[in-house]
Amino acid sequence: MYDFTYHRPATIADAAAAFKACAEAQFLSGGQTLLPIMKQRLAKPANLIDLAGIAALRGASVDGQTVVIGATTPHADVAGAAEVRSTIPALAALAECIGDPQVRNRGTIAGSIANSDPSADYPAALLGLGATVRTDRREIAADDFFTGLFETALEEGEIITAVSFPVPKKAGYAKFPNPASRYAIVGVMAVETAAGVRIAVTGARPCVFRATSFEAALGASLSSAAALPAFPADGLNQDIHASAEYRAHLVGVMTKRAIAAAT
């Protein structure tokens, strides 16, 4: 990787100040995506601001009907947290299928969602569960957060502090992994809330999205018996592992499996 200056602030305010003070700065959370990219010399931050020293950003808790995951909480902690497993087991299950055990021990929720990788798992959780991203400046609804390929609504220097998930009536996640990278070729979070059904799909398009045609077909509840319309292949990702047509097919299959898995 290229040379950089390393910063390790102890507070959110210090982190924000460091960002403002430094040129070409980037926040570092678990580093499981950023560091590999830097090793390949595809990212060249002159200043790296490590958020791991800020204790307030880490940890999972339940506040009434809301599960709050601190920004730098590693995936393994989300997967293993009793309060998450008992309230939104699908969220724990999703966290448990990110990367591999070592990546889950370092990678964090904020790092994942700030990157908005089209094949990452967490974006499906946020969008499906209707989560809210809390930052040092505001709250952003998941529906507004993911704006495109590796793009989010985050402003320059804005720091994610936590993600809050309303507890759904039920939810399930199903993932068809890329056999090599184990990222999602297609991942579907199927969620039933009091307000209706949300089907969030990752891996299939440049950015996580809701399968509105499936939501309409399902109506108010996640029913395994519901007939889903064919999912169109237009605009879906294609690569050496899966054509757009195959991904479209998998969106349907994984949705059914997510519904079947929902608890």
């Binding site: 390393y6 390790r8 570092l28 580093g31 499981q32 560091l35 590999p36 090793k39 390949q40 490590d50 791991a52 393994a76 591999d100 055990p101 070592q102 990546v103 021990n105 370092r106 990278s181």
Partner: peptide, 27 residues
């Protein structure tokens, strides 16, 4: 490897297995 996958570099940090090729010494 250089893509944080092979695990030959795994060590325990504070009791947890991590990929030491994907962690700065500073971290």
């Amino acid at each position: 490897c250089d893509t944080s996958q092979c695990g030959a570099c795994n060590v325990l940090v504070n009791g947890r297995a991590v990929k030491s090729c994907t962690m700065l010494a500073a971290q």
